[in-house]
Write a protein that binds this DNA or RNA. Structure first.
Length: 376
RNA sequence: GGGGAGGUACCAAAGCGGUCAAAUGGGGCAGACUGUAAAUCUGUUGGCUAAGCCUUCGAAGGUUCGAAUCCUUCUCUCCCCA
């Protein structure tokens, strides 16, 4: 994997770069649509590719391991073939499920025992096993197995959790180095900075992670409920330490505003369920502001979904019509909203990249921000 | 014409003497959602000068300290038989 920095801003840490993988090129900053079980929920892969213009999408180790299971994915020839995406993919390690499924799992130094959310069956994930599964899934970028600490989280827990994440990282790296890709493209392992909301822990973690000289580095454990200022402050602190010449991935972030602010702090890669999940629930991000399509005010608004949108759904459908679809529980409503939101996100980072290259990113950001947060 | 069942809030439907401004669904209105246990979840849904008060359970009378609940008449709907 090759990362080239094309341009760095003068007045912030924003950067424009290019990642080259065996399955394709990724121009950063980039937003990666989340496709947990191998599907970007409610959106045709053709549209993810062409209309939305995604360059890389996510999959999830825990979910794909449970269903359809590694053997099916191996037989399919890897996840990119299985879901017909055929382009770069990234798999999360299941570290986030350690957090979100906290009711049904048990953490030990050796690994995590999970209960499947599907049938309650028990499974064990170790760093080694997670690497093995990700080899079989076959994403271009794979993630280290970490513990995403909850928020709030006391210092002692955060410190122990961080030590655990670091020891798991060493085991992930060892196992990664001792195994080979199964398909005919290379894979790259990204370690993850943790440390909850504690600056010294974050600093320490960023240093440990940097020492691995990985192809790219991630920041996890943020946007789990802490105030956004805290998230920005910690991101800022961590990007000062992480290598300049490697892509930085802020996991699980965020709102359009979060993304632009984090780009200023030196982040190159993002993923978030927000455009798809909120889209499914009737919320769309538009060039004029945020719209809750279920609200009565759109009942007879026959203007395009987004006058300035780039997706074909934006001018094909009216707000009133998509509202009607939501009120009628038609699956087409969530599909259109998801398509729109993803296109909006991808266009946002594309514009950000353009303005970084043009040298006016901060000015552009200041001008566009009020519209991004405006509630219509 | 005879027999039976029933009319409760936007809809459906509980309630059958006080703890009922009235369960529960649905619908409506609004909010939430950040490495997806989510096409999900939460709040709210008679009025007001609002820890209280007022008007509501087909209509009108009545019994009772007290009625959506009991009685009388009227009215409307549905079902069965002719």
């Amino acid at each position: 994997m090759k990362f080239t920095l094309n341009k760095t801003s003068q007045d912030s840490k924003a950067r424009a770069g290019t990642i080259v993988t065996d399955n394709g090129i990724i121009e950063t900053p980039i937003f990666m649509p989340v496709g947990t079980v191998g599907s970007v929920k409610g959106v045709y892969i053709q549209d993810v590719k062409e209309d939305i213009g995604a360059q890389i999408i996510l999959g999830n180790t825990y979910h794909l391991y449970l269903r359809p299971g590694t053997e099916i994915i191996r037989k399919a020839g890897g996840i990119q073939k299985f879901n017909a995406w055929n382009k770069p993919m990234l798999t999360d390690s299941g570290g986030y499920q350690v957090y979100s499924l906290s009711q049904t799992r048990k953490i030990t130094p050796e690994g995590v025992t999970f209960q499947s959310h599907i049938d309650g069956s028990r499974h064990f994930f170790s760093p080694e096993k997670v690497i093995e599964i990700q080899r079989i899934i076959g994403a271009d970028i794979i993630m280290a197995f970490d513990e995403c600490a909850p928020y709030p989280c006391d210092y002692d827990y955060a410190k122990k959790s961080l030590d655990l994440t670091h020891s798991w990282l060493q085991r992930c790296v060892n196992h990664f180095k001792s195994t080979e890709p199964i398909y005919n493209h290379r894979q790259f392992l990204f370690p993850i900075v943790q440390g909850s909301v504690y600056k010294d822990l974050r600093r320490q973690s960023a240093e440990v992670i940097s020492s691995y000289e990985a192809s790219g580095n991630a920041i996890g454990g943020l946007s789990v409920g802490e105030p956004v200022e805290v998230m920005y402050e910690l991101t800022d602190l961590v990007t000062d330490i992480l290598p300049q010449d490697k892509p930085r991935y802020l996991m699980g972030v965020g709102t359009p505003e979060n993304i632009l602010e984090s780009i200023s702090l030196g982040i190159d890669m993002f993923d978030c369920v927000m455009p798809t999940r909120n889209g499914r629930n009737g919320m769309i991000f538009t060039s004029e502001g945020i719209i809750n399509l279920k609200n009565q005010k759109w009942e007879d608004d026959f203007s395009p979904l987004d006058e300035n949108g780039t997706s074909y759904v934006d001018k094909t459908y009216t707000k009133a019509y998509v509202r009607h679809l939501f009120k009628s529980n038609e699956m087409l409503g969530p599909m259109i909203a998801s398509n729109h939101n993803l296109a909006f996100y991808l266009r946002l980072v594309k514009e950000a990249r353009k303005h970084i290259i043009d040298g006016d990113f901060e000015t552009w950001k200041r001008n566009i921000l009020p519209k991004l947060t405006n509630r219509l």
